[in-house]
Amino acid sequence: VIAMPSVRKYAREKGVDIRLVQGTGKNGRVLKEDIDAFLAGGA
C-alpha cells in the first residue's frame, strides 16, 4: 500500500486497516480523504 507516513498514522489512530482502503491518489496512493471516506461508510 502506497501512503505517506502521516496518512498511515492517521489510519492507525482511527482504527482503520489501511490495506482495506481504496487509494484515489496518484498510482493508487491512499490519501487522508480516502480514510475519511472509508470511515463515512464504505470502500
Score class of each variant (00 low, 15 high):
2 I>F: 05
43 A>P: 14
32 K>E: 06
40 A>P: 05
4 M>I: 12
36 D>P: 01
43 A>T: 14
9 K>V: 09
30 V>D: 00
43 A>R: 09
1 V>L: 10
36 D>E: 07
11 A>V: 01
41 G>Y: 12
34 D>L: 00
31 L>W: 05
18 I>Y: 05
22 Q>G: 08
28 G>V: 02
14 K>G: 03
3 A>M: 05
17 D>S: 06
4 M>F: 15
7 V>R: 01
12 R>W: 15
41 G>C: 08
24 T>I: 02
9 K>W: 10
29 R>H: 10
32 K>A: 07
8 R>K: 12
18 I>T: 03
27 N>F: 11
32 K>H: 09
1 V>Q: 09
39 L>M: 10
13 E>M: 14
8 R>I: 15
1 V>F: 06
20 L>W: 10
19 R>M: 10
20 L>T: 07
42 G>Q: 15
5 P>V: 11
41 G>T: 14
33 E>N: 10
21 V>E: 00
42 G>A: 14
38 F>S: 04
36 D>H: 04
15 G>P: 01
23 G>R: 03
42 G>T: 13
8 R>V: 15
2 I>E: 09
26 K>M: 11
18 I>S: 01
40 A>N: 13
13 E>A: 12
8 R>T: 08
3 A>E: 05
27 N>P: 02
22 Q>S: 13
30 V>W: 02
23 G>Q: 03
17 D>W: 04
33 E>P: 08
11 A>N: 00
41 G>N: 15
12 R>E: 15
30 V>S: 01
37 A>V: 10
29 R>V: 08
15 G>L: 07
7 V>N: 03
12 R>F: 15
11 A>M: 01
24 T>G: 05
30 V>H: 02
43 A>N: 14
12 R>V: 15
41 G>R: 05
43 A>I: 13
29 R>Y: 08
19 R>D: 08
5 P>A: 15
31 L>D: 05
40 A>D: 11
2 I>S: 09
27 N>K: 11
40 A>W: 10
7 V>H: 02
16 V>F: 02
26 K>R: 12
23 G>P: 08
4 M>P: 11
10 Y>K: 02
18 I>M: 06
15 G>E: 06
21 V>N: 00
40 A>G: 11
21 V>W: 02
5 P>I: 13
16 V>R: 00
1 V>N: 08
33 E>K: 15
8 R>H: 15
11 A>R: 00
7 V>I: 08
26 K>Y: 12
15 G>N: 11
41 G>E: 13
42 G>W: 11
35 I>F: 00
19 R>Y: 09
34 D>S: 02
36 D>R: 05
12 R>P: 01
22 Q>M: 12
25 G>H: 03
6 S>W: 13
21 V>L: 07
10 Y>T: 02
32 K>W: 08
21 V>H: 01
8 R>M: 15
20 L>N: 11
39 L>V: 10
37 A>N: 13
16 V>L: 06
35 I>A: 00
37 A>L: 11
16 V>E: 00
37 A>D: 10
43 A>F: 14
35 I>Y: 00
21 V>D: 00
11 A>G: 04
42 G>F: 14
39 L>G: 04
17 D>N: 09
42 G>E: 14
43 A>G: 14
5 P>S: 14
18 I>H: 03
41 G>S: 14
28 G>L: 05
24 T>M: 05
18 I>F: 04
3 A>W: 03
34 D>Q: 01
16 V>K: 01
27 N>D: 13
32 K>C: 04
35 I>V: 11
6 S>M: 08
34 D>P: 00
23 G>M: 02
14 K>S: 07
39 L>R: 06
5 P>E: 15
1 V>Y: 05
9 K>Q: 13
43 A>Y: 14
39 L>K: 06
16 V>Q: 01
8 R>A: 09
9 K>M: 09
31 L>G: 05
19 R>S: 11
27 N>M: 09
15 G>F: 07
40 A>K: 13
25 G>A: 05
43 A>L: 14
23 G>D: 01
19 R>T: 12
36 D>I: 06
30 V>Y: 02
15 G>W: 05
29 R>N: 08
5 P>N: 13
14 K>M: 13
8 R>E: 12
18 I>K: 00
21 V>C: 06
12 R>Q: 15
24 T>S: 13
2 I>Q: 09
37 A>I: 09
24 T>P: 01
38 F>H: 09
10 Y>L: 04
6 S>Q: 10
36 D>S: 04
33 E>S: 14
31 L>A: 05
41 G>A: 14
14 K>C: 07
9 K>P: 01
29 R>T: 10
1 V>P: 10
27 N>R: 09
3 A>I: 09
5 P>G: 11
27 N>E: 09
19 R>I: 07
38 F>D: 03
41 G>L: 14
33 E>I: 13
22 Q>Y: 11
20 L>P: 02
4 M>H: 15
39 L>Q: 06
8 R>S: 07
36 D>K: 05
43 A>D: 13
36 D>Y: 04
4 M>E: 15
22 Q>W: 09
21 V>I: 12
28 G>M: 06
31 L>R: 10
13 E>Q: 13
36 D>W: 04
4 M>Y: 15
22 Q>K: 15
34 D>C: 00
17 D>G: 02
20 L>H: 11
14 K>D: 01
35 I>T: 00
12 R>I: 15
38 F>K: 04
14 K>N: 11
31 L>M: 11
13 E>Y: 10
27 N>G: 14
7 V>W: 03
7 V>E: 06
11 A>T: 01
22 Q>H: 14
30 V>M: 03
3 A>F: 04
39 L>Y: 06
25 G>T: 03
23 G>T: 03
17 D>Y: 04
30 V>R: 03
10 Y>N: 01
16 V>G: 00
3 A>S: 07
4 M>D: 15
16 V>N: 01
43 A>Q: 14
7 V>P: 03
12 R>A: 15
6 S>R: 08
2 I>K: 07
40 A>I: 12
12 R>G: 08
25 G>S: 04
8 R>F: 15
14 K>T: 07
18 I>D: 01
35 I>P: 00
17 D>V: 04
20 L>A: 10
26 K>H: 12
19 R>A: 11
15 G>R: 08
9 K>F: 08
13 E>T: 09
4 M>G: 15
7 V>F: 02
4 M>Q: 14
13 E>W: 09
25 G>D: 03
34 D>W: 00
21 V>S: 01
33 E>A: 14
2 I>G: 07
39 L>F: 07
28 G>W: 04
29 R>I: 09
42 G>Y: 12
32 K>V: 09
1 V>D: 07
5 P>T: 11
38 F>G: 03
39 L>C: 04
43 A>C: 07
25 G>W: 02
35 I>W: 00
22 Q>E: 11
13 E>N: 10
21 V>A: 03
38 F>M: 07
11 A>P: 01
8 R>W: 15
7 V>T: 06
32 K>D: 04
21 V>Q: 01
15 G>C: 08
12 R>S: 14
22 Q>F: 11
20 L>G: 07
21 V>M: 04
28 G>H: 07
19 R>V: 07
1 V>I: 13
5 P>W: 06
40 A>T: 11
38 F>A: 07
3 A>G: 05
37 A>P: 01
13 E>L: 14
28 G>I: 02
42 G>L: 14
23 G>F: 02
39 L>W: 06
30 V>F: 01
10 Y>I: 03
19 R>F: 09
32 K>L: 11
26 K>W: 10
18 I>A: 03
6 S>P: 07
10 Y>R: 02
20 L>E: 10
24 T>R: 06
31 L>V: 09
25 G>L: 02
41 G>V: 13
2 I>H: 09
33 E>H: 12
17 D>H: 05
37 A>H: 12
15 G>V: 04
14 K>E: 05
7 V>Y: 02
37 A>Q: 11
29 R>K: 09
24 T>L: 04
2 I>T: 10
28 G>F: 06
42 G>I: 14
2 I>W: 03
18 I>R: 01
29 R>A: 14
19 R>K: 11
6 S>I: 08
25 G>Y: 02
19 R>W: 10
13 E>K: 13
24 T>A: 03
32 K>M: 12
29 R>D: 07
30 V>K: 03
14 K>Q: 11
28 G>A: 06
39 L>T: 06
10 Y>S: 02
10 Y>A: 02
34 D>M: 01
12 R>L: 15
26 K>I: 11
37 A>T: 12
7 V>L: 05
24 T>W: 03
12 R>D: 13
13 E>F: 10
19 R>G: 09
8 R>Q: 14
16 V>M: 03
29 R>E: 15
13 E>S: 13
12 R>H: 15
1 V>M: 09
9 K>S: 09
27 N>C: 07
25 G>R: 02
10 Y>W: 04
14 K>V: 10
33 E>L: 10
26 K>E: 12
38 F>I: 07
40 A>M: 13
4 M>L: 15
37 A>S: 11
39 L>H: 06
35 I>E: 00
10 Y>F: 04
31 L>T: 13
22 Q>D: 08
30 V>A: 03
